[in-house]
Amino acid sequence: MGDRAIDVYEAYQGQVNWPQVVASGVRRVFVKLTNGGGQARVRGDRYVAGARAAGARVGGYHYALGGDPVAQANVFADELIRLNALDLAPALDYEDHSLPKGPAAQTWIRRFLTQLNVRLPQLGKNLLYGSGSDLQAMRAWEITVPGADVLEWAAEYGVNNGTKNPIRHYKGGQAAVHQYTSAGRVPGIAGHVDLDDVLANIDEGTVFVGDRPPPTPGTAATIRAALIQMMEDCMVTFPPAPTTRTKVLALPPDYDVTLVFAAESTIFGGHIYNWTPTEGKGTGGDPVQWRVEVKEGEPIRIPSGTSKAHVEYSCGTEVSCFIQVKPRG
């Protein structure tokens, strides 16, 4: 493909003129969303909104730290969903010195990406970022997870002067993205910025329908079809929650959707709230404020036009959510 992307963090790049960035040829933007077990110190809201409004495809990345990979994956998934930063494959930035290295890294990465794909089953790709030498040492091309491809994002600069140099250290696999400098310059950004050469398809084909318009004209039918195919006879697993927790489901607003919940123990305090593609319509904006109690084994018909459902629950064991989608009428 050879398209240019950038990866940014507001704490470093500061104020950005996004129309200038996109006009310069940048079409894909990765925003730092989370760091270890929490949100990034400077949250990604403004960057995600600004890049998207200027016409870029937007994704997020997580800066991993030593610790529980499952917990970190959940934090990352929460931010990806909250900001709908799902135009690009979500990226795991695996470079910190506190993380396992070499072959031991594979186990940590698999646990992180497996949990991320449990939370975001509609996505089909993950990106694994690291230096070329680190990716080689961990044999990154061997890492696989259920339900999604793992694509490598290799950072290799050569002479770090803003120009492209070939990948020299990562020999075992084929990088999907090459970060070739951290000293790049892009109109609309005052200081240095990481520049990335996109060498394979890293775009995701589905978005949370109804949250915003399709990224390009004429793709609504494609997005809808992909989302329907993904959700038909689909089961999503929610983790145990000793206290009340919220999960988000993306739903196609022009199809009939039914949810059925099951668990090995009682589901307490379960409710579903709905949002529609029309701004202000849905719980929190609609005077009707539709909500329904989650009852195990009982089919729950979601109101027509719902694009997003917030499932609020607490349960001592995992909760399985079965999703059935049918053409309306």
Results as ranks from 00 to 15, higher is better:
160 N>E: 07
129 Y>R: 08
146 P>W: 09
126 N>I: 06
125 K>M: 08
168 R>P: 00
133 S>F: 12
140 A>L: 07
143 I>C: 09
191 G>D: 10
161 N>C: 07
149 D>L: 11
124 G>T: 14
160 N>C: 05
130 G>Y: 00
172 G>W: 15
170 Y>L: 11
153 W>D: 02
138 M>K: 05
185 R>K: 14
180 Y>K: 05
135 L>C: 08
150 V>C: 13
140 A>G: 09
166 P>I: 12
163 T>L: 12
133 S>E: 12
178 H>Q: 11
124 G>D: 09
185 R>G: 13
175 A>C: 04
189 I>Q: 00
182 S>W: 03
140 A>S: 04
175 A>W: 03
136 Q>D: 05
165 N>P: 09
144 T>N: 12
151 L>W: 03
141 W>D: 14
132 G>F: 01
146 P>T: 10
126 N>Y: 08
165 N>G: 13
145 V>Q: 09
177 V>P: 03
171 K>I: 15
165 N>W: 13
151 L>N: 02
188 G>R: 04
183 A>I: 11
173 G>D: 06
139 R>A: 11
154 A>L: 10
187 P>G: 07
178 H>I: 00
149 D>S: 14
150 V>Y: 02
124 G>K: 13
184 G>P: 01
181 T>D: 10
155 A>Q: 09
131 S>D: 08
190 A>L: 10
190 A>P: 00
165 N>K: 14
190 A>G: 00
150 V>R: 01
175 A>M: 06
131 S>F: 05
178 H>C: 03
183 A>S: 12
130 G>W: 00
142 E>D: 15
185 R>F: 08
147 G>P: 02
135 L>D: 03
127 L>S: 07
134 D>A: 14
153 W>F: 11
164 K>W: 15
154 A>M: 07
134 D>Q: 13
126 N>F: 10
172 G>A: 15
192 H>I: 03
139 R>H: 10
123 L>P: 00
144 T>M: 10
158 G>Q: 07
175 A>G: 08
167 I>F: 08
143 I>A: 06
171 K>D: 04
165 N>E: 13
132 G>W: 01
129 Y>W: 10
123 L>S: 03
182 S>K: 11
